[in-house]
Design a protein around this nucleic acid. Structure first.
Lengths: 212, 212, 212, 212
DNA sequence: GATGAATGAGGTTTCATTCAT
DNA sequence: AATGAATGAAACCTCATTCAT
């Protein structure tokens, strides 16, 4: 039985426990990325980590907690990377371009993590059968993207359009970049990212009608 | 035991067999759409259809064949609808816009089918754990979209860009339109489709030349 | 998957299913009687019956349903036996004596059933941890006994006393007769029953008035 | 590793060890009383005591030894209370009445202990599946009760009857008094005890037929 | 053609116990 | 003396598949 919450509500985890949890999360990411969510049984995750099945049950309340821990860690890392890269940018165009390109960088550097994240998003279900994560889970991301596009509209860089549709499409296009690269590893991810940046820049920006 | 292949390699299916297979496929679509791929056991599909579990095993070699049959039928129907709607169109802009809008129509009319198709695409795996369907399965669709965009480039309607990236993004954006609508059923699907058409039209078309 | 309820709410069970359920119930009774509730796993019950573990899952929704079926069948049989023996009796004294003696007969003829019934009563718990069967489950039995004692009070055979305490004690004493016989099989069950009948007759009956 | 037996065969326990064992026993009693024997895992007992699971294994050879320690301590305390209350009584009638009433007092004052005792009695099994405690374990208690009833027969207070049956029934009736009170806490335990005393007094005593 | 019945593998989880620190 | 960590067995349950009827 793991330590209880302390009064502050934060788990107090020993060094060993932290390390084990990280090891298990890492193993889960690899197994899910390689074999898919449906084949990622606790037995396989344990075997892949070279530990006993019971260890996972000891460190996590159940499979769901493990999966949620994977999501939390992986998602946080991705957000962190992208935010660091767009920090300080001042034009909406630069923001949207950099969001796409930084996402591609992160995918290139952590493909298994991103793959696992997607698998869990699509497959993890609540006990009642409804998806644990849905598009509504991405609300935060969508609002960030909306903010970029809305900022561009207000600054005059961008034409008028429905920012929600733009954000949803932007997000899906970025995800599809990763999926395509996963299917065709020789595909040029960086070039794809720049093309995609062009695509959304053209889609969003005010059409020039310069008069002579 | 079902009939063997005849010498020509084509299954000969009786009327009853054809009807049963259709009934089972329909039931599978509904169960998958409602409960998700992971919860769509043969038992549930059979129960939903009001038939015995054995019937499915009798008419299909296994669960995988059933799933593939669902994909085949549903995919064919979707393609058929969109093709009929874009037939005869002559400008690339009209083609791309109509492809998006017709897709939305099909989603509106057959949401369960489209939902099930997505579930199977994301979840069905080969025995070795690799995905049964991948982006490569969409090659045909991607080429059709590429053809539209390339046609536009050749006709001068569209600016130069990587048609593959455009096709992949286009496809993903259309899929995300459906996913978003599924999550928020009150969302205006038709409006989304028109916004999306605008999005890709702006993304692709030649920027207006300066007026002299 | 077993057949669904028909509209009337009654399960429709085939002959084979009925036989299998009876066989499994019988096996469960024997295993519980011999090894105790805690050791009566589905695996052992299946093994004892010479069938596969999955058969039980096929015929019963779960272990709980199996246990409840055991209780239902065994309890009904016991009640039926005792009721048949006391039918037509007219004095309260005869009723209480015969209730005890008939119970002993049933115990003698079906010791495993009675043992299993007790095990399940004491051990089966609801998912929330509360007992599935409690003293409140015996309410029906207690009321029957109360009726006997109250009848005796009204007819003047019995002295005044709290009929509930008498019924609870009566019921416990009968159960302890079985438990004692189980522990000491050479113990004379029939003699015990007659002694117990004397005990409660003396406990209940009106004290003879002094002769003048 | 705990201290070995000394040559005399008695464990030598340090103060700390004694205190820890008592703490663990107390925790076990509470957990068993609240959640039932089946749900009283070592993990839960340790958690309830606010100690590590390993401590229990350190101080007790195993779960069985802990359970036996609970029985020993609780039983001794109960016997002690009842013996103190009947000490010095001189008539069999007083003895039997007081045994019942004193038992009820103990139940009222230590319900968790009594509940836990019952749970363990009914559920603890030897490795071979046979009950660890049975009616034979109560032999000492039964003989004490027999002594009371035999004393009453010899003094002429009680009629002739089988003292073993009377003792077994008496014991069971007292236990059922507790079980009933547990199920219906608003039930008047003291009144029940007095009714029960009346019951066995009437059951046992010589029926007067005084002639004038 | 169709069905109910049965199987056995594999899933997650709980648990008593052991062990190094 | 005490602990956290780890183990492996066993529990219940679900499932795809096979088979006799």
């Amino acid at each position: 039985m793991r330590p209880e919450n302390n009064p502050g509500g934060q788990k107090v985890r020993s060094f060993i426990e932290t390390a084990r949890r990280a090891q298990i999360v890492a193993s889960a990411i690899e197994v899910i990325a390689e074999q898919g969510f449906a084949n990622a049984s606790l037995a396989r995750i344990a075997q892949h980590a070279g530990i006993s099945k019971g260890v996972i049950s000891y460190h996590f309340a159940g499979k769901d907690e493990l999966m949620e821990e994977v999501v939390t860690q992986v998602y946080a890392e991705a957000v962190q990377h992208v935010l660091a890269r767009i920090e300080g940018l001042e034009s909406a165009t630069e923001l949207l371009r950099t969001q796409i390109i930084a996402s591609a960088e992160h995918m290139r550097d952590h493909p298994a993590q991103v793959k696992a994240l997607g698998e869990i998003f699509y497959n993890l279900r609540l006990p009642d059968g409804r998806p644990r994560y849905g598009i509504d889970t991405s609300e935060e991301l969508l609002q960030s993207l909306e903010n970029i596009y809305r900022f561009g509209q207000e600054s005059g860089e961008f034409r008028p359009f429905d920012v929600r549709v733009m954000a949803v499409s932007h997000s899906a296009a970025v995800d599809s970049m990763f999926a395509y690269w996963t299917a065709y590893p020789e595909h040029d991810l960086e070039a794809h990212a720049h093309e995609l940046a062009d695509l959304f820049e053209h889609a969003a920006r005010t059409q020039e009608a310069p008069h002579s």
